[in-house]
Simulated scan of single mutants.
Amino acid sequence: MRRIFYFIATNAAIMIVAGIIIQFLPAEYQTSDGRFLIIALVAGFGGSIVSLLMSKSMAKRAAGVYVIESPRNETEQWLLTTVARQAEQAGIGMPEVGIFETPDMNAFATGANKNNALVAVSTGLLHNMTRDEAEAVMGHEIAHVANGDMVTLALIQGVVNTFVLLLARALALAIDRDGRGIGYFVGFMAGQVVFGFLASIVVAFFSRRREYRADAGGAEYAGAHKMIAALEKLKQGQAGHLPDQLAAFGINSSVKSLFSTHPPLEERIAALKNR
């Protein structure tokens, strides 16, 4: 879930800046439907594309990922070997493999394309899961890369961004038709907040659907019994509270909500058992 958190956070920051910049455009750009549609498309898809391109470098910095270049021990060698085998199975280029420090069992994959990705696992996952379970988690993340989920999310986010800007403008013009007064500015910014909040439900829905596909990929690359065991282990480890930054972006989430990017673990386990 970390990959989604970094992507959405970057996208949100860019869209806030874009929304402010739009306020300084001449009034005719605010009131002309054709001109504003072009602005909305450029700003909407521009935010999501920049977020996608920055996703890997941002994730490395934010999570403190140590990228394995020369394995320092047997565990790091096993990680590289396992990811290489799964990447070959999936028909993608070898991703960078990294480790980040946290006691929580988590992992993520990110990157702008299938042949230049990053797969990272937490120290908590390595310490608390068996090799079979960890293998399945990495298979799940490799499936995200192979399925092009980050690109798909970027396209969905671009469409959503565009509609948020158009709806925010409609609200602003309903308050101030001339597009020149403080009412337009306040309406436009408030509209971005309200419609952006509602749009996050749409993005979360598509994200949840992609998780089932990634689970199926993990089952294919590592074995269904290993993927089920990994999800069961994650379920057992949820007695404690996950930090907010992990609640939006790892493999580990049990919250059932319209805004949740992952389905509850019980539903994911049931889906694998019923395949």
Rank of each mutant, 00 (worst) to 15 (best):
Y184Q: 03
I68L: 06
S32M: 09
I4D: 01
E133R: 02
S70R: 14
R61H: 13
L167T: 12
M15G: 08
T81Q: 14
A154N: 06
G47W: 02
L173S: 04
R169Y: 05
Y212R: 14
S200W: 14
A230N: 01
I38G: 05
L153Y: 12
N252D: 10
A143L: 07
M227D: 04
E96D: 15
L25D: 04
V202T: 15
A204W: 09
K273C: 08
G240N: 06
R180K: 11
E211F: 02
R177I: 06
T261M: 00
I251Y: 12
R210E: 08
L171E: 00
L53P: 02
A18W: 14
I156W: 11
Q157A: 14
E220G: 02
G44Y: 01
A214W: 03
V17H: 06
A59N: 12
I38N: 06
G237Y: 05
E69F: 03
L153G: 13
I49Y: 14
F197D: 03
N73G: 09
I20T: 09
G218I: 08
I22N: 08
A224M: 06
I20W: 13
G158I: 08
L125H: 11
F206H: 15
A27V: 07
Y29R: 05
A204I: 12
A174G: 11
A214S: 15
E28A: 12
T162D: 03
L272R: 05
M105E: 05
S51L: 05
E101M: 13
L258R: 09
S122K: 00
Q23S: 02
D215A: 09
G91N: 06
A59I: 01
L41W: 04
A216T: 15
P264I: 05
A239Q: 14
A136W: 09
H140C: 06
L37W: 13
T152N: 13
L25E: 08
K56F: 05
I8V: 14
A9Q: 01
F185N: 07
F185A: 13
R208F: 02
V65M: 06
V160Y: 00
R72I: 00
I175S: 06
S207A: 13
K56C: 09
V50Y: 10
S200P: 02
I39H: 01
E220W: 12
M1V: 07
V119Q: 04
I182A: 12
M1Q: 05
E211L: 10
Q23G: 12
V121A: 03
T261Q: 03
E96C: 07
G98H: 09
N161D: 13
Y184L: 07
G237V: 04
N115Y: 10
V50L: 11
Q77A: 13
E267L: 13
L198D: 02
F249G: 15
Q23E: 03
